[in-house]
Each structure stands twice: as structure tokens, then as C-alpha cells.
């Protein structure tokens, strides 16, 4: 009890300074160990230089990249925004299931969902064939291959054997990689778990996790812009993108960003 009271006194006395500190340098055990930084306008240029959004188009061109985990959608939003900002870089979203992203949420993340062509394939193998066709057409610079199965309890069945039968084989991955290099395009695969897209042909693997945050919204972190819909009835979360595998660099780098939950999800 005494310990908590002491903490309270220290927070009260350094209140303003505490709140102005960078979000990820708040004494979290992880933040000291990992090369992370916030997207906050904290003025810490060194931290900002280290903490850059890892999914940038020029780094994905000619490669197959896997982004796995429950926060894969949120993590890919930055890339999609970048692609849409650069006019003349069309991309296609190929889904191997019937659970597309909720378009108003994409729009809330600054992505125009009405200009995205969604291709619905019945299974991952067909989705890979569709991706191959799209790459071969030379029309797209980014192909987003959505292989998540979303364990909803309603669409999962058949066990590992069925999953193995639906897995994209190395030959198909090899063709995709060759097309990516040949056509100067990027293939980003969204998967459920790390390693779902098997094989050594995947150049970079990212793991995107999501967890409930500290309860302080991102808008307040950045100086309290009340014009933005911070949402009293929505909780704050954060997502982390961890570099799990890279053929050129050392894995382990983490990127974090504060995330607003949907309304009602406390």
C-alpha cells in the first residue's frame, strides 16, 4: 500500500513531465530491451529514427513478405495508405475466405476501400493462382494475399490435414517470387500464425500482435486533439509488429502503435 502511495506522489509531482514523455519510454520492461519507438510527436529524434514503420513498399518490392498474427490487418494499413497516396500504384486484395475487412474501418484508417478490387477465391491454392494471374498481368505493384482463416468456430474444421491440403506449395511460391522479381511487384501475405506460409522463399516474416493498452488514447498522447473521434466507449489498444525473420538483417526489431478499439469494445 505504501509503495502504491509513493508511486502516486511521484506521478503527481512529475505529472506534466510524465505525460509528455514518449509513450514507449514509460518504464515498460520491454521498451528498454527492444529497439522500439512511438509514432508520437515526442521530439525524441533518436527514438523516431529507430522506430520506423517497417512495411514500406520499396522494401517489399521483388519479395514475398509474411505478416501474421491477430493484428495483421491493422499493421498492413500503413502500407496500404502509402500505396494509395502514390497515385498510379494499383494493388489488389485477394482473399482465400469469405470474411473481408469491414470497409468503414479501413476508411477510418485513411484507406479508400472503394478503390480496392477484392478477389474472392475459394481456398488458398486458388488464391495463390489468382495472385499469380494478377502478377503476370503486370498491372499491380502490390498484391495482398489474405490467407487468414480467422478461428471463428464456424469455419474451422478438418484439422491439420485439411490445413495441409490447402497450403500453398513451394512450386507455387517459387513462381510467385519469380514473378515478383520479374514484374517489380510486392506480395504481402496475411496469415493467422507465424510460419503458415511455409518455405524459405519468404523473404521477411513479421508477427503482429495486439493487446490492451494503458488506457490513454493516441490522440491524447499527441497533444489532445479532441476533434478526432477518440471515443469514450472504446478502449485503447496497441499493436506490435515484430520482425521475426529477415534474410538481410537481424530479427527482433519491434514497432508499436496505439490503436483505438471499435466502439463498445472495452
Amino acid at each position: 500500500m505504501l509503495y502504491r502511495a509513493r508511486d502516486l506522489i511521484s506521478i503527481t509531482s512529475f505529472g506534466e513531465a510524465y505525460h509528455n514523455k514518449p509513450y514507449l519510454d514509460r518504464g515498460d520492461a520491454e521498451s528498454t530491451a527492444e529497439p522500439v519507438c512511438s509514432t508520437a510527436c515526442d521530439g525524441a529524434s533518436k527514438t523516431q529514427a529507430r522506430n520506423r514503420y517497417p512495411l514500406r513498399l520499396e522494401r517489399l518490392i521483388g519479395r514475398i513478405t509474411e505478416l501474421s498474427g491477430p493484428a495483421a490487418l491493422e499493421a498492413s494499413c500503413g502500407l496500404l495508405r502509402e500505396v494509395q497516396r502514390r497515385r498510379g500504384v494499383p494493388f489488389v486484395w485477394i482473399l482465400a475466405h469469405r470474411l473481408p475487412p469491414f470497409a468503414p474501418d479501413l476508411a477510418a484508417n485513411g484507406i479508400d476501400p472503394q478503390s480496392i478490387p477484392f478477389v474472392f477465391a475459394p481456398q488458398p491454392v486458388a488464391a495463390a493462382q489468382a495472385a499469380e494471374r494478377c502478377l503476370r498481368s503486370r498491372a499491380f505493384e502490390l498484391v495482398l494475399l489474405d490467407l487468414t482463416n480467422q478461428a471463428t468456430g464456424t469455419n474451422r474444421g478438418g484439422g491439420d490435414r485439411a490445413a495441409a491440403a490447402q497450403r500453398i506449395d513451394d512450386a507455387a511460391l517459387g513462381r510467385l517470387l519469380r514473378l515478383c522479381r520479374q514484374e517489380r511487384a510486392a506480395l504481402l501475405a496475411l496469415t493467422d500464425r507465424h510460419g503458415d506460409l511455409a518455405g524459405s522463399l519468404v523473404f521477411t516474416r513479421f508477427a503482429a500482435a495486439r493487446r490492451k493498452g494503458s488506457g490513454r488514447s493516441g490522440a491524447r498522447e499527441r497533444g489532445g486533439s479532441d476533434s478526432c473521434e477518440s471515443g469514450e466507449s472504446s478502449a485503447d489498444y496497441e499493436y506490435r509488429v515484430t520482425l521475426a525473420k529477415s534474410k538481410t538483417g537481424r530479427p527482433g526489431a519491434v514497432y508499436r502503435e496505439v490503436l483505438r478499439g471499435p466502439h463498445g469494445m472495452l
Binding site: A107, N109, G110, Q150, L259
Partner: peptide
């Protein structure tokens, strides 16, 4: 859409699937 987002940077939102 992008312009609206640009007005409020850093307000990433969780993306649901429907």
C-alpha cells in the same frame, strides 16, 4: 478519405472483419 485521415494523424483504429 486520405485527407480526413491526414487531419487526425496517429488515430489508427482496429480493423474488424465482417
Amino acid at each position: 478519405v486520405q485527407a480526413q485521415y491526414a487531419d487526425c494523424p496517429g488515430t489508427a483504429q482496429m480493423v474488424r472483419r465482417a
